[in-house]
Amino acid sequence: MDKQKITAYGDELYEAWVACRPVRPLLEREPEITIEDAYQIQERFVARRVQAGEKIIGKKIGATSKPVQDFLGVYQPDFGMLLTGMVFQEGDTIDLATLIQPKAEAELAFVLKADLKGPGITAMDVIRATDYVLPCFEIVDSRIVDWKIKIQDTVADNASCGVYVLGKTKGDPRQLDITLAGMVLEKNGELFSTGVGAAVQGSPANAVAWLANTLGELGIPFKAGEIILSGSQSALVPVVDGDELVCTVGGLGSCRVKFSGRSAA
């Protein structure tokens, strides 16, 4: 795909994000897009946000668990960039008017204390380089109309990242069993679903190692201090005005988030 088109699609997604107005699937218009092209479009989309004043503060891993893969029809993990404008704090209310078609995912976030550069990274290296883990919600959102995405569409769209909320309880992955820690997701006080760390590539640390190696191939390291969202342990939860979600990670703690207003689609 030529550079001009990549720039144009990246700009289109950036503008769709600014205006909260979704666009037609890219793959529908451009059947030849490769996953590599899609990552270049993502790079452009993210670069526009950085130009507008945001900073990259971490990465997210997407499409890591079966329920999410089934929903997306995407059967391989992907990644996107976390930016300063995406951050919410535990207990915050998220204004849905800033999003298009949001869905929540309960995840474990990793905060790194050392650089990690693939290839050759294993789950053990991930634990070693992790400062702490946190329960978190990622609110995924798609700039592609009606979530009609294929892998190339979601990759170009920054892995459908919307915003994210970090819990306050820090856990040490040397003490917490991140593979077997249960995940209990409640919506408006009622049990919505349950999951477990193993739902993500056998262990969230495996997902982080996968991304370290994938980025390593591209010459991009994880830096100390970066936040890595390791992927959903739950099914996707649609959210509307007034909804409150709580996810609790067994042996760690919980993260709570509220929603108000109306999303664009």
């Binding site: 069993d177 593979t179 077997l180 820690a181 249960g182 995940m183 209990v184 349950t194 999951g195 477990v196 760390g197 193993a198 739902a199 056998g202 609790t248 990670v249 067994g250 042996g251």
Partner: peptide, 18 residues
């Protein structure tokens, strides 16, 4: 309340929950 559980059949995860 939050105990995670994984069931493996012949070495493969077949079901899980909390």
């Amino acid at each position: 309340r939050t105990l995670g559980v994984v069931m493996e059949k012949n070495g493969e995860i077949v079901t899980m929950g909390a």
